[in-house]
């Protein structure tokens, strides 16, 4: 049941991305291009996603626990630390350069051709690299 619900949620998420055209890197970069031919579509995607999630989460959190798991696993860390801000800042650079973030990169695997496969492989390598150096980073920041 857990697997089925997760698969369904992933499917719904992916359909949302494609319907909103957020799997098109040009569309995402056009949103980030506020000084050029700005396309605000991504802002609308975020607003409705936040509305549905904001209201939905409120209803969900009124329950003691999820339907098929013992607890809600939400992050409890509230510190605005260097790791968070450096990580998010660098992510924006990579996102702006190509117009792909992790969700669309995975969703576009079936139709984006070799460029997406290349980006995806590099992204997986970047995540793997982080896993290897995570402990060293924890000592610094």
């Amino acid at each position: 049941m857990k697997t089925m619900m997760a698969g369904l949620a992933g499917l719904l998420f992916g359909i949302g991305l494609v319907v909103a055209d957020m799997t098109n890197p040009a569309k995402v970069r056009a949103f980030l291009d506020i000084g050029g031919n700005w396309d605000p579509s991504l802002a609308i995607v975020m607003v409705t996603a936040l509305l549905v999630t904001g209201i939905g989460y409120r209803l969900v959190f009124k329950r003691d626990k999820p339907l098929f798991a013992p607890t809600f696993q939400t992050p409890t860390n509230t510190a605005l630390d260097a790791r968070l801000l450096i990580g998010a800042g660098l992510f924006g650079v990579g996102w702006g350069l190509v117009g792909l973030c992790p969700g669309p990169a995975i969703a576009a695997l079936s139709f984006g051709g070799w460029p997406v496969l290349g980006f995806f492989a590099a992204m997986a390598a970047g995540m793997g690299l982080y896993a290897m150096v995570e402990d060293q980073i924890a000592k610094v920041v």
Binding site: L85, I86, A122, G126, E134
Partner: peptide, 12 residues
Amino acid sequence: AGLLVGFSTRLG
């Protein structure tokens, strides 16, 4: 960009 996105989303 792929390396950067992969690494930095885990970092952040």
